[in-house]
């Protein structure tokens, strides 16, 4: 009965593969990056990093062109949105001295001395995420430069993310736009604090606030365009004062007990090239 034997073998192979996969998934979920699977992954990254850097140099311009073909509609839409926002900002600036002052303060944040005082490693983005379900970038600096898991990463616009993998020769950064990202933030003007979490659908951050903890005046003062920065509070993984985003909208729940603040991150991952990895851990003093 050769047919029976072949079918049995096929089923046997399928069962072995399924059980092996489930075992690997379980081990990986339990051990995170610290187990043997994490060690194998670091070796794989180490081998591939030089190739990724070379591919970035050779195919980067081709990739931009490629993306430009496919994303032409998105770019036009984004351009329209940006033009609209620019017009709104100009109107605001003309009408309000306060808005001008806020703008000055916002720009001044980039030059705050503490960012320069925290020991940091300059790094270059050499690759984007290899898959479709994570928002990460790969840097060309890793453990050999003192980069370690958990370090915050900042760019020209503010917070970029945090290091989630590091090996000799490179590291992976989870971006602020990833659905699994979380950061303690404060609204710069209102001094309202809370934990902001990534959202799967939109790439926005969601800040849940309880209205019982806020005065009516504070609630009313939150408006679209308000600046949001890291607060560095409550064992936060990020030092205070790093620009994170701006308020997109405020949603008041029908119960009236809570309100949700949607935050648009400042990060533009598509144009990200150079970043700084801050060698800063939770509990470190801000210089």
């Amino acid at each position: 009965m050769p047919g029976f034997g072949r079918d049995t073998r096929r089923r046997y192979v399928l069962i072995v593969i399924v059980l092996t996969s489930i075992t690997l998934i379980t081990l990986d979920r339990r051990a995170d990056d610290k187990g043997p699977l994490g060690a194998v992954a670091r070796v794989a990254h180490r081998i591939v990093s030089p190739l990724a850097a070379a591919a970035d140099a050779v195919f980067g311009p081709v990739g931009d062109w490629f993306a430009g073909i496919a994303d032409g509609g998105d770019l036009r839409r984004e351009n329209r949105d940006l033009a609209e926002r620019l017009a709104q900002e100009r109107a605001k600036n003309r009408q309000s001295e306060q808005a001008i002052e806020e703008n000055r303060r916002y720009k001044a944040l980039f030059g705050e001395p503490w960012l320069d005082d925290i020991p940091s490693v300059a790094a270059k983005v050499i690759a984007g995420a290899p898959g479709n379900f994570e928002r990460t970038v790969v840097l060309n600096r890793g453990t050999e430069s003192g980069v370690a898991i958990g370090y915050p990463v900042v760019g020209p616009d503010g917070l970029v993310g945090r290091v989630v993998e590091a090996w000799d020769g490179g590291s992976t950064v989870l971006l602020v736009t990833d659905p699994t990202f979380g950061v303690a933030v404060r609204l710069t003007d209102q001094r309202i604090r809370g934990p902001a979490e990534g959202q799967p659908e939109s790439g926005l951050l969601k800040l849940n606030l309880t209205s019982a903890d806020l005065s009516d005046e504070q609630i009313e003062s939150i408006v679209a365009g308000d600046d949001v920065e890291t607060c560095g509070c409550d064992e936060s993984e990020y030092p205070p004062g790093i620009p994170v985003g701006e308020v997109l909208r405020v949603e008041r729940q029908t119960s009236g007990i809570s309100l949700i603040v949607r935050i648009r991150p400042l990060l533009d991952a598509s144009s990200l090239e150079n970043v700084k990895v801050l060698r800063w851990r939770t509990g470190d003093l801000v210089p």
Partner: peptide
């Protein structure tokens, strides 16, 4: 499929074995 999926999983943040299982099935 299991081999290529497992190789790809090493570079992803989804659990190792997830792509391997999907590709193999």
């Amino acid at each position: 499929g299991f081999a290529t999926g497992l190789g790809f999983d090493l570079f992803l943040h989804t659990p190792t074995g997830l792509s391997a299982l999907a590709y193999a099935l």
